[in-house]
Design a protein around this nucleic acid. Structure first.
Lengths: 116, 116
DNA sequence: CTCACTGTACTAACACAATAATACATCAAA
DNA sequence: TTTGATGTATTATTGTGTTAGTACAGTGAG
């Protein structure tokens, strides 16, 4: 796993883990790997993992059982809603960015067609 | 002008300035504001401006006349090519991100329609 | 109970982005 | 020539992301 230097690692890691929840690698109600395991998996410091996970907890995507581990939230709707919110944010941001480049919606669609 | 803390300011500033070139606020061949002026405009340190501008110089979007100022590159084609490259990168990245959310191209188009 | 595993907390050290304050060299204009 | 503008370079300081190492408390299994 490679991290960019354009953003703090803990934020990048947080996004990666959120994706794992969204795409079902970590399923609703399931336990996620321990802080120490994640640190090994992604070759970062346990403290960095903890910071990343606290982001996910703020998003209500995971919850903590103090001496047992951290778990994906049980209600799948929460995950689904998060997914839709993310998709909308990404779409809006994409369209805005294209607009800033002077590319209107009609042309934007051409760019999308071109990239299968 | 507000900067996020998710990315170094000099990179954010560099993107803003690149946009000013792309959308024609700073036209081909034109002089851009001095390092000190830009620092005042965006309320950042002159050193930060310099770092941002060196990014633009690496992209060949601007060039320097040592004691006269910095100028947008004269050849408009360079700017146009940069714009297209950016748009392609953004589109590709957007489609990949949506795919990671489990949203295929057909559904992605619906999201775009929904966001006029 | 003992041991291994959890999350959590703390300190220390390092790297680097960012700010601040100067200083210098070059050119153009007054 | 003098003045002011330009880019550039240097040094010091601050804040914080990251790593490293250690320690503690609670839980469950053997």
């Amino acid at each position: 796993m490679k991290f960019s230097n354009e953003m703090p690692i803990y934020l990048q890691l947080s996004k990666v883990l959120a994706l794992n929840i969204v795409n079902g690698k970590y399923k609703a109600g399931e336990k996620i790997p321990s802080v120490r395991d994640l640190a090994n998996i992604y070759k970062v410091n346990p403290n960095t993992v903890q910071k990343a996970l606290s982001e996910l907890e703020n998003l209500n995507l995971i919850y903590t059982e103090r001496t047992n581990g951290k778990f994906v939230v049980k209600d799948y709707k929460v995950i689904k809603n998060y997914t839709i919110r993310l998709a909308n944010e990404m779409t809006l941001s994409y369209l805005e960015n294209m607009k800033e480049l002077g590319i209107e919606k009609k042309e934007t669609l051409k760019f999308i067609e071109r990239n299968e």
